[in-house]
C-alpha cells in the first residue's frame, strides 16, 4: 500500500457533515467568527494539491520529548508520563509519510505556558508544552509527554476542557492541512465539552479519542496512548492507474 511515488490527484471533497460547522453558538466565540455565506467549492488546482515539505533535518533531538525538551538541570516535567503514538493515514488507508506533526498542550495542572493563560494552577518550570515530529515512510509517529490536566475556560459559567493535546498536521497538499485535538479515552469531560460537541457524530468524536494501549507501554516508565489521524484522500491520476493498477 505504501508508495513513495509523487501523488498529484485531486482531493476528495471535505465531508461537512462529519466536520464541525462554522457556526456553533454553544461555543460562544464561534458566533462572530463563522462565515455566514456558503463556501465557494473549488476543484483542486495545483495550488491545493501541492504543499510545503519539511525535512527531518529541522528536528532537534528532543523535539519529540516534551518531558525533557524544556527541562533544566537533568530534571523532567511533572505529571503522568505517557507515549502518544499512531499513524497518519489518508482516507484511502494509505500511510502519509513525511507529515509534520506539531503538538501543544497544558501542563499536568491544566496551565499553558502562555502570557494569556491566567489560570491559577502553577506553571511547571520544566515543561514548555510544545513538540514536533515527522512521520516515517509508513506514516508512523510517536512522541513522549505528560498527560495534560483539564482546565476551566470562559464560555458557559462552568465549562471545563477535557484533557487534550492540540495537533497540527501537514500532509502532502495544502488542502490536507488540519488542526485538531486529541482526547483521552474514558474522560467524562469529553461529552460535556462545547468544543468537542461542535462535532455532531459520536463516531467522529471517537476518532479524536486516543485509546489506552497497554501493549506499547514502556514498563516502569510510561503508559501509551494510540492515536491515528486521517487526512483527506486524493484520487488516483490516470498515470497512477497505469503504473499501479489500483
Amino acid at each position: 500500500m505504501t508508495s513513495n511515488k509523487v501523488e498529484q490527484g485531486a482531493f476528495y471533497p471535505r465531508d461537512h457533515e462529519w466536520q464541525p460547522k462554522a457556526y456553533t453558538p454553544w461555543y460562544r466565540t464561534s458566533i462572530l467568527r463563522s462565515p455566514q455565506k456558503p463556501l465557494l467549492r473549488l476543484d483542486s488546482t495545483i495550488s491545493e494539491i501541492t504543499g510545503p515539505v519539511f525535512g527531518h533535518n529541522i528536528l532537534g533531538q528532543l523535539d519529540d520529548d516534551l518531558t525533557l525538551n524544556y527541562a533544566k538541570n537533568g530534571e523532567s516535567a511533572l505529571g503522568e508520563r505517557i507515549v502518544v503514538h499512531g499513524r497518519v493515514l489518508d482516507e484511502r488507508g494509505k500511510g502519509v509519510s513525511n507529515a509534520l506533526i506539531e503538538v501543544w498542550q497544558a501542563n499536568a495542572g491544566g496551565r499553558y505556558r502562555h502570557k494569556k493563560d491566567a489560570y491559577l494552577a502553577p506553571l511547571d518550570p520544566n515543561f514548555g508544552g510544545c513538540g514536533r515530529t515527522i512521520t516515517d515512510v509508513d506514516g508512523y509517529y510517536a512522541f513522549r509527554t505528560i498527560k495534560p490536566g483539564p482546565y476551566p475556560w470562559p464560555n458557559g459559567v462552568n465549562d471545563w476542557r477535557p484533557a487534550h493535546i492540540h495537533f497540527s498536521l501537514f500532509g502532502a497538499g495544502f488542502a490536507q492541512r488540519l488542526i485538531t485535538q486529541m482526547y483521552f479515552e474514558g474522560d467524562p469531560h469529553i461529552g460535556l465539552c462545547p468544543i468537542v460537541n461542535t462535532i455532531k457524530d459520536d463516531a467522529a468524536i471517537d476518532q479524536l479519542t486516543a485509546k489506552l494501549d497497554m501493549n506499547n507501554t514502556i514498563p516502569m516508565d510510561a503508559r501509551a496512548y494510540r492515536f491515528d489521524i486521517v487526512l483527506r484522500g486524493r484520487r488516483s491520476t490516470k498515470f497512477d492507474n497505469r503504473l499501479e493498477g489500483n
Partner: peptide
C-alpha cells in the same frame, strides 16, 4: 474508501505555543 478525515477542532487561543513558540517568548 474505508476512512473518514479526522474532524477538525479549533486551534484555540494558544496555537502559538506549538506553532510559533519563539513569537511569544517561549
Amino acid at each position: 474508501d474505508p476512512l473518514k478525515e479526522s474532524p477538525s477542532q479549533t486551534a484555540g487561543p494558544y496555537v502559538h505555543i506549538g506553532c510559533m513558540p519563539n513569537s511569544i517568548g517561549n
